[in-house]
Design a protein around this nucleic acid. Sequence first.
DNA 1: TATTGTTATACTCTATAACTATA
DNA 2: TATAGTTATAGAGTATAACAATA
Lengths: 145, 145
Amino acid sequence: MTSVNDASQTDHVARLLGEALRRVRQEILSTSEEHFPGLRVSHYRLLELIPPEGARITDLAEVALMTKQGLGQHVDYLQKLGYTTSDRLPEDRRVRLVRRTTTGDAAVAYSHAAIARIEQTWSTRLGPTRYATLRQTLQELGATP
Amino acid sequence: MTSVNDASQTDHVARLLGEALRRVRQEILSTSEEHFPGLRVSHYRLLELIPPEGARITDLAEVALMTKQGLGQHVDYLQKLGYTTSDRLPEDRRVRLVRRTTTGDAAVAYSHAAIARIEQTWSTRLGPTRYATLRQTLQELGATP
DNA sequence: TATTGTTATACTCTATAACTATA
DNA sequence: TATAGTTATAGAGTATAACAATA
C-alpha cells in the first residue's frame, strides 16, 4: 500500500496538521497574558475577522462558522475586557455593529506577529522556497470545496 | 468585498492549517455515529495511540499530551461503550493496562479510512507528487522541536 | 411574519487539586 | 515516601431551544 493508504503508524495527515497547529497556538499563548489579559486563541481568531468599519454578529458568526449565540458570548466577553465596542445601528436598531477598539487592533497585530514568527521559523528551517510551496499548497486545498 | 474581512487579511498559516484540519474532522464525523456510536474525534485520537499489547494510563497521557485525569475520563467512557477493556497488572496492582477491543480496533480502522479518503482527495487534487511533498514537509516540521 | 440578537441550558474537552491504593 | 490512578470541581468552547425586540 502507498503511504496515502497506510496510516497505521498514526503518522497520518491529521496528526501532522494538528501538531503544526498546536505550535502556532502555543506561540500565540506564550506571551499573550502579559500583553492582552483574558485573551485566548479563540478570541484572537474572532478579533481578526472584524473589519475596520465593524460587522454584525450574524455576519461574524457566518464567517467564523459558529452560531450567533456562541459568537455573541465571545463578543460580550471581548467588550467587557475593552477589546471591542458595539452600537445599535440607527437605521435598524436590531443590529449591533461590533468594532475593535485600539487595544483590539493591537491584539490582532500581536497575534499576527506571533504567527509571523512561526512562519519565519519554518521558512528558515525548510528554506524559503519549500516553505512557500507548503503555504501555496495549503491555500489551494483551502480554496477548493 | 463583503462587510466582513476577506481572506487576504487573515490568510496566515494558522487559518490554512485550521481549515485543513476541520475537513479531516468533518470526514471522520460524517458517518461516525452510525458505525461507532458515541465516538468523537478526541476518542479516535486516543484509541489509535493504544498499542496491541495495551498501555498504561500514565503513558497514554504523556503521548497524548494530556493529564492522566483527563485521559482517564476518556478511558472510562470508551470502556463503558465497549471500545476498550482494562485489567490491573498482577505484578503492580496500581497499574491499569488499557487495551482495545475488537470494536475498538474497527473504530481505529474506520478513522484511518476516513483520513485516507481525505488524503486521496487531496492527492488527486494536487497530483501525487505535490501531495507527497506537502506531507513530507509537514512531517519534517513536526520532527524538529 | 421574518430577522437580529439574547437568555437559558447543556454537552464536550481538558485542566487543577485533593484523594486512595499500592509499591 | 513515591507512584498509578480516581474523585471532585471548574473553566473554555460551542451548541440547541426558546425568547424579545425590531423591521
